[in-house]
Design a protein around this nucleic acid. Structure first.
Length: 429
RNA sequence: CGGGCUGUAGUAUACCGGUAGUACAAGCGCUUUGGGAGCGUUUAGACUGGGUUCGAUUCCCAGCAGCCCGACCA
């Protein structure tokens, strides 16, 4: 993509009404646009990140036999009444509305009840189980207080998977598989090393649940981490009984602030009982289906990556979810340099490298470098009179520490000059 | 939902009960070109409603909007 054609622009100024790092950097970079408090649009660069995150999640969900669907955002009152969750006392974040004929509707807060209804049409026998279904779909939650940029919003996409098993044993087997799938997702998106399986309360749905918490100083939650075992306990259930039952000891637990990037629940038969999702066993008895639900918010995951990995100059995207692999900069407007840069761009495209080409004219080198740092692509590749004289292109990784000042310009960080062929080998080994 | 703070060009800010100033952005011209460059020039602004006042962007009230702390969080 040529940056001269990209409709978004970077901003030098920090918006004063955003304090959180993720919102500041994502807005300055033009990844997202704030529509209102807790409601953000995703612009071209941001959407590319979201799509990559979704694809990683999709691959991991498919690997554990998930089947993708899309459910509706409009939900009927009757769907939620059997579990008593239409009432404002039970669920206080509903956005409710009405049809012209006064029928009450809700905007999707979550989908346990609707998916249970759907599955009633298809599950009758033990032969139909187990089944696993997921979607990426917009949730609406009328949060009293939206905050922390894209971390806690009123409208957001969530990947929610629902499992339907014959009994608790079959459920537990899947539940353990889902933990590994989730851990793969966080590893692949670059935050695996700071994300912990965390024992937590079950909220409305069950007594306990598991969260995946990523350690960042700006996190909303407090967790106690046992680094050697790689697990943690949420403050909300942090007591002697829980610590003992998990085989942990207080001496090894370290307090941290963290962001909940994923959450898995055992639902049991709460929904299948209430909505009468039953199946017949081999002996002809009717049993309620044993359920679980498994959520990840791609937007929050994106915000968490920004919070956890950025430096004082901008975002540092992991290769796996970067909007582009390479940020190609051309310095100077001389024809010879621009022709050479165009050639490099074409070669990268031909080799299937995702490249953002800063071909903007009359933009100073400093501004291009600052933008490259802010936008955070993994590789910065520079074409300039100097790189051409040195026989190639200058390559610098975004996550490499600054090299010592080499006298080539104020605050200059020199990359390594290599040929385009070597660059391609580096990117596509 | 309790508490606190804030609304001035696109963004960030300043002053003031009496002509709203600056920087960045944007447009134009020239210069510059390896870390957000310079000179000149142009465009552009007081959240809404009520009150006090000769006069309100400024003071008061209400509404709306935003941020922060806490509580909440499927």
């Amino acid at each position: 993509m040529r940056q001269s054609k990209l409709f978004t622009k970077t901003k030098k100024e920090v918006p004063t009404d955003e304090v959180s790092k993720n919102a500041e950097l994502l807005i300055r970079g033009g990844f997202i646009y704030k529509e209102m408090a807790g409601v953000y649009s995703y612009l071209p660069l941001g959407l590319r990140v979201i799509k990559k995150i979704e694809n990683i999640i999709r691959e991991e969900m498919n690997a554990i036999d998930g089947q993708e669907i899309t459910m509706t955002a409009l939900q009927e009152r009757e769907t939620w009444e059997p579990t008593n969750q239409w009432s404002d006392e039970q669920v206080d974040v509903w956005f409710k509305t009405k049809l012209k004929n006064e029928t009450e509707l809700g905007l999707a807060v979550t989908h346990e009840a609707p998916i249970t209804k759907i599955m009633k049409s298809f599950i009758q026998s033990y032969r139909d189980l187990p089944k696993f279904v997921y979607q990426f779909q917009t949730k609406f939650r009328n949060e009293i207080r939206a905050k922390s940029g894209i971390m806690r919003t009123r409208e957001f996409v969530m990947k929610d998977l629902y499992s339907f098993c014959r009994d608790e044993k079959e459920h537990n087997e899947f539940y353990e598989k889902s933990k590994i799938a989730y851990q793969n997702i966080f590893k692949r998106t670059g935050i695996g090393h700071i994300t912990y399986l965390t024992f937590a309360s079950g909220g409305m749905f069950s007594k306990f649940s598991h969260e995946f918490q990523t350690i960042t100083s700006t996190g909303e939650d407090t967790i106690y981490v046992d680094g050697s075992k790689g697990i943690a306990v949420n403050k909300e259930v942090y007591n002697d009984e829980v610590i003992e039952s998990l085989g942990l000891s207080k001496e090894n637990l370290v307090e941290n602030r963290a962001v909940e990037v994923g959450n898995i629940f055992t639902l049991g038969t709460r929904f299948s009982d209430a909505l009468e999702l039953k199946y017949q066993t081999e002996t002809g008895e009717f049993k309620s289906v044993f359920m679980g639900s498994y959520g990840i918010g791609p937007g929050r995951l994106m915000g968490t990556v920004v919070e956890a990995l950025a430096d004082d100059k901008g975002i540092i995207w992991p290769l796996s979810i970067a909007p582009f692999t390479v940020h190609l900069l051309v310095l100077g407007d001389e024809d010879s340099v621009r022709i050479e840069a165009d050639k490099v761009y074409e070669k990268l495209l031909k080799a299937d490298v995702e490249v953002l080409f800063d071909d903007r004219k009359e933009i100073s080198a400093g501004e291009k470098f600052a933008d490259a740092d802010l936008l955070g692509m993994p590789y910065r590749v520079v074409v300039s009179t100097r790189s051409i004289k040195d026989g190639g292109v200058e390559v610098k990784k975004r996550n490499e520490p600054a090299r010592p000042h080499d006298g080539l310009g104020a605050g200059g960080e020199k990359g390594k000059v290599i040929s385009v062929e070597e660059l391609l080998k580096l990117l596509k080994p």
